[in-house]
Amino acid sequence: MDSRAVIDDRTTQDSAELPFGLRFARTPRSSVRLDLDQVRYDERSQRAFAADGDRWLPLIDHRLAQTLQTSGESPREDEIFDKSFT
């Protein structure tokens, strides 16, 4: 699984043209860059799997799952298709 922690505390530049609240916007301290080729959705079991070396593990058993479950509104990825059918 080619995912890695990314730490970046950059904040949005202050600008009088931007709403006040956006001055507090910042990149999450820790996030995962997700390689979509390493994740697939299995229509039969109706669950996602993540590549782990030469195996496919249920996503919920993979370390990636913990990141996807945390409460921050992580960027959504809705384009995971079952590659076994393509």
Partner: peptide, 19 residues
């Protein structure tokens, strides 16, 4: 019926438990 996106680990947890 589970309405969710394909990549939703939390929904996976529920589907797994129901299964």
């Amino acid at each position: 019926l589970v309405l969710t996106a394909r990549l939703d680990a939390t929904a996976d947890l529920v589907v797994t438990e129901l299964d």
